[in-house]
């Protein structure tokens, strides 16, 4: 895997804002709120008889609107629909950064998608490997198969829980505590970390309950998630706030990075920073803290 691809896969994705690709008012303005990623939806948000029209809307938006620093991800229709192949052709031709596959259940699902993305890159003269993939996990089978899904393709940068469909598959419903999602969340984050890909939490559907949203975001950050899918721009500053390191964390991370770089040059592997034992294992985490501090504007 090339360094550029690795960097693209690891970029900061605290906030992924869903927007209906068929709605001009949304695709025009959503990036103004500064989400790390925009998720242009061709799937559930688009009525069955508007799938074709949504593609033309998506294509023209991606070709003509400058979305600034926001990543452009397209959620295509599932492999069990007649729409997904044309969705892939459209998204790749339009210049999307990534494609999200809904209802992913096996590594084979990712392989099938990857083959189609490769064909589209070739057809439209785009360098092979440009378009990344992510997998939405929406069923018990998908959760069980997370590890094989995470390692199915070099293009895959992460997996995301889709809580609504997942709870239907579990024969339960979403609750304020989210207890029904805990098993999937724990399993997914462990699989993602083992495979060295990112992991994203499901949407919080009550857009008026911002305290509940903040609480859930704090919980999933503590669990290790990289970010959260969002359905309303009002949720963006809350996620970014939760994922912004404190001044104390930033100062400690600076010291850890500096000390590890200095000590390793001197051949010293283990030492202490502010009374805590530190070794090379802390390096990536500290750099990640600094990266999040820069993204939030707390560090230049």
């Amino acid at each position: 895997m090339g360094e550029a691809l690795t960097d693209k896969k690891k970029r900061l994705r605290r906030s992924m804002l869903f927007l209906n690709a068929q709605k001009p008012s949304l695709i025009r303005d959503a990036y103004l709120y500064g989400p790390d990623s925009l998720m242009f939806d061709l799937e559930d948000a688009v009525a069955e008889n508007q799938k074709d029209s949504a593609r033309f809307s998506l294509y023209n938006a991606l070709r003509n609107i400058d979305y600034g620093r926001s990543e452009k991800i397209v959620r295509i229709n599932g492999l069990d629909t007649p729409h997904w192949r044309e969705d892939v052709r459209c998204a790749v031709a339009a210049g999307c950064d990534s494609i999200r596959l809904p209802k992913t259940e096996t590594a084979r699902d990712i392989s099938i998608l990857e083959e189609e993305v490769f064909k589209a890159e070739k057809e439209f003269g785009i360098e092979e490997g440009t378009v990344l993939l992510m997998a939405a996990i929406e069923s018990a089978r998908g959760v069980i198969n997370c590890m094989e899904i995470c390692t199915a393709s070099d293009r895959l940068f992460g997996i995301a829980l889709s809580g609504g469909d997942y709870t239907k598959d579990l024969q339960t419903t979403l609750s304020p505590t989210g207890v029904e999602l805990m098993g999937a969340r724990q399993h997914m984050i462990i699989a993602a970390r083992a495979a060295k890909v990112q992991c994203f939490d499901t949407v919080y559907t009550n857009v008026n309950d911002l305290d509940g949203f903040r609480h859930e975001t704090e919980m999933i950050k503590q669990m290790g998630f990289d970010g959260k899918s969002l359905i309303n721009p009002r949720q963006i500053p809350i996620v970014h706030g939760v994922f912004t390191p404190t001044d104390k964390e930033i100062e400690f991370a600076k010291k850890v990075v500096r000390e590890i770089e200095e000590k390793s040059a001197q051949g010293i592997g283990v030492f202490t920073v502010d009374g805590k034992m530190i070794d090379i294992a802390f390096y990536d985490g500290a750099r990640r803290t600094l990266e999040m501090a820069r993204a939030s504007g707390k560090l230049r």
């Binding site: 074709d52 029209s53 033309f56 809307s57 023209n60 070709r63 609107i65 044309e86 052709r89 459209c90």
Partner: peptide
Amino acid sequence: CTIRARVESAAFRSAEIKEEI
């Protein structure tokens, strides 16, 4: 870009072309 998208969408529907755009 929205005007272009809607004109294209209507035209392809009129021409009954749904795939391989």
